[in-house]
Design a protein around this nucleic acid. Structure first.
Lengths: 212, 212
DNA sequence: GTCTATATCATGATAGAC
DNA sequence: GTCTATCATGATATAGAC
């Protein structure tokens, strides 16, 4: 693949990502994307097929590395723990860390990607369902097992409800990180991932910690 | 207002509500709404002006009674508590109870309204911002004060982060209540508000309970 | 591979008859 | 108040020149 291709492709993906994160799938037009990417309208169809395919590519580009990292972190943590359960705080770091790192990392567009992941999971589009299920199911199954060991007395239903609450808190945090200042009347800062991650870990550890 | 008016108006609002809840604002067309409501396409413009006004009316119809109920419950709880803080579990019932009651109540369309509230708060549309701020700010301020008394040692920033996590959990629970079965591979039931509310109260009480 | 030009269609909104 | 008919716009997608 030539260099010019790569740049055009990347510009489209990056422009699409930030617009999808801000406005959602239906709220974003291909014209907005090509305008921001400074490419011709036809380029997106040529490179990515239709709008749905483009959206899935944007998602896949962010979700796959994150879930790979999570699996690798889980591997290492379980090896270190031996027969013992992986500590709760470590599990929650595995859950949230890669997302906040994407948000904060060297890739300045990562924060749009992280926000988009939160948004894509909240508002389901029909054509993303099987894709998202396939992307998350493998690592979520293993993560759930590891987490389950900390609360063996909970019924499966109780466990899943608690897990659902924690996932909701994480997605909400990701989706609002860029406007926390206005949401908190100036008390919290915008994009303050350094504040968010440890507080989330503490929060989530407490939820699954030793309580009735 | 004549009876026929009211029925037409209501049919439009109810149809719009369920479609907005399923597909979001941008994903829903006026034609879908009028088709489901079995009214003419022009009726919605005649009665409600444009699409944005209709959306705001749909939201207002659900949000106003809920926040009024919350304020009344808070009044009563504070009167009962006297100088003492209102118990945490009571506060969380005030936060979540009216929403789950709308979801489960005698109005069979309430569940779409409850889901829409969750969705409207997650994915902000430019033209809803001032409306939503105005609707929630009055009661949220009082609720925050009451909740704050349980964790006076927390910094304002820590407090707001925890509150944000809890709000996110609540919104996520509301937004996914109708598809919990598929999300949990059959373990939780769909629309099981009787399972969700007490578990949320327990969860949220724990988050603000006596922990470091 | 890239762009111009365009085909095709659906949308929100309205004018005007009844 | 309600409906038919229609408008202007902007959407996705593609055909075909270069």
């Amino acid at each position: 693949m030539s260099n010019a291709d790569k740049e055009t492709l990347d510009r489209i993906l990056i422009a699409a990502e930030s617009l999808f994160a801000d406005q959602g799938y239906d709220g974003t037009t291909l014209r907005q994307i090509t305008r921001r990417a400074k490419v011709n309208l036809a380029a997106v169809n040529y490179h990515h097929g239709d709008k749905e395919s483009l959206y899935l590519e944007v998602l896949r580009r962010r979700i796959q590395p994150i879930n790979q990292t999570r699996l690798a972190m889980l591997d290492e943590a379980e090896q270190q723990a031996g027969d013992q359960p992986v500590p709760l705080a470590v599990l929650m770091e595995i859950l949230a860390g890669p997302l906040f790192e994407l948000y904060a990392g060297p890739d300045e567009n990562g924060r749009h990607g992280a926000r988009l992941i939160g948004r894509a999971l909240v508002e389901p589009l029909p054509f993303t369902e099987t894709f998202l299920a396939g992307e998350f199911q493998p690592w979520l199954a293993r993560f759930g097992q590891a987490l389950r060991r900390h609360v063996p007395a909970l019924t499966p239903e109780d466990f899943l409800w608690r897990f659902s609450f924690v996932i909701g808190a994480l997605q909400h945090a990701l989706a609002t990180l860029h406007r926390m200042k206005s949401l908190t009347r100036g008390i919290c800062r915008d994009n303050d991932h350094n504040a968010a991650l440890p507080r989330f870990v503490q929060f989530a550890t407490g939820v699954f910690g030793a309580r009735p």
